[in-house]
Each structure stands twice: as C-alpha cells, then as structure tokens.
Computed example of a mutant assay.
Amino acid sequence: MSKFVILSGCSGDGKSTLLAELAKRGFAVAEDPGRRIVKQQLESAGEALPWVNMAAFAHSAIRMALQDLVDAQKRSRLTFFDRGLVDAVAALHHATGEAISSDLIAANRYHEEVFMAPPWHEIYHADPERRHGLESAIAEYERLMNIYPALGYKVRVLPKLAVGQRADYILRHLPQELLR
C-alpha cells in the first residue's frame, strides 16, 4: 500500500491550506509543484509559466513531481502531496495533446484513493502565482475527475468544511495502517 496520498482538484479551493494543516499535525508534505515552479520562474524572469509556455511548465512540473516522490521514498512514511505527477501529466496532455504515459504513471503510483477538492466559489481567488479564472480552474477539475479514475485511482471528493474538519475527514478515510 502506497504511503503517498494525493490532494488534487480545483485551483484555489484550499488544498495548500489543507496541506499546511496536515503538516501542522506532524505529517510529511510535498507542496504543489506548479506553485513552486511559478514562484521560481517569476523570481528568475523565466518562461516556464502556464500563461507563457504551458508545455515547458508541465514538463517542469513532471520533473519536480518525480523528485518529490524520490524525496518521499527516502522518508518512508505517510506523505501528503498537493497535486503530483498525474496532475502534471494531465496538464501536459491538455497543453500539447501528448499522450498520457501509462508506463510513467504505473511506475510512480500514489495511494489508490485521491482526495479531490471541488470548486468552491466562496474561497477562490487569483494571486500572482494563480492568474487563471475560476472557469479555467473548473475545467481543469473536470479533466482531473476523469483522468484519475481512468488511471485506476478512486476519487473521494472533499466536503466543503473548515480546514481542520477537512483534515479530519481525510484521516478518517485512510486505512489505519497507513496512519501508523
């Protein structure tokens, strides 16, 4: 059983806040590769930005997600990921039409259950690292809701609750042996 749990879903729906809550509770976490890449690219005037060169951005996200998995394997304990390899490969597929590499996905599996944060209009906001609107975020969410099950993952949609309650919800729905 994989100890790598994905939090995915709609942009701007509280995944990063939820990840911070899980970290506060002592769990290992891997922050969203996309947000880290955007921050790095903005600081260095790079072009691997989703609004400049989506393919370069997605390729960078794939590399970073793979490195996050390597780093998590070294810890050998439960790790929560704010997005991951599947999200990055899905972004590349959307940007370029490039086929989703089932071999790459199969060789780098996460826990079978993915926690998907749905669109949440009341908390969505753009920022310097998230420039797209809610409509784009919802379209991405819908793509991910199709891609994860097609790759053999079970999707559990997170309820729209306060962050602590969302964290409790995740922990209640994971196998106890994973939490030890």
Rank of each mutant, 00 (worst) to 15 (best):
S44G: 06
V89N: 07
I138W: 00
K39S: 01
C10V: 01
N53Q: 05
P128A: 05
S2W: 01
L144E: 09
E122M: 09
E112Y: 08
Q67N: 05
G9E: 00
R109L: 03
A30R: 13
M54T: 01
L78A: 13
K154W: 04
E47T: 09
D127W: 10
G84H: 05
V70Y: 07
K3T: 02
K74T: 13
A20Q: 03
A58Y: 02
L92P: 07
G84C: 07
S102Y: 00
V89R: 12
E129C: 08
Y110G: 03
G12W: 04
H121V: 10
L18V: 00
L151Q: 08
A167L: 11
N53H: 01
A91W: 02
S60E: 04
G12C: 03
G97V: 07
V38D: 00
A72D: 10
E112S: 05
R83E: 12
R25I: 15
R131H: 03
L179M: 08
Y169I: 07
D82F: 05
G12Y: 04
L92A: 11
R35P: 01
A117E: 13
I138H: 03
E47H: 06
A139W: 02
F80W: 07
E177F: 11
R25C: 12
Q165D: 14
T79C: 08
I138D: 05
I105S: 06
L92R: 06
L151C: 10
Y124P: 15
A58R: 00
V52R: 00
S102Q: 06
W120A: 11
D168C: 12
Q165Y: 06
E129T: 12
A90Q: 10
K39V: 01
G152F: 02
S136D: 14
V155Y: 00
I105C: 04
R75F: 11
A48S: 15
R143E: 10
L174W: 00
Y148M: 12
S76V: 13
F80K: 05
Y148F: 10
Y169L: 03
Y110T: 01
L85Y: 13
P149K: 04
A48P: 07
K39L: 00
P159A: 05
D71W: 06
I62L: 00
I6G: 05
H121F: 11
L69P: 14
L158E: 08
W120Q: 15
F81R: 12
E142N: 10
I170V: 12
S44Y: 04
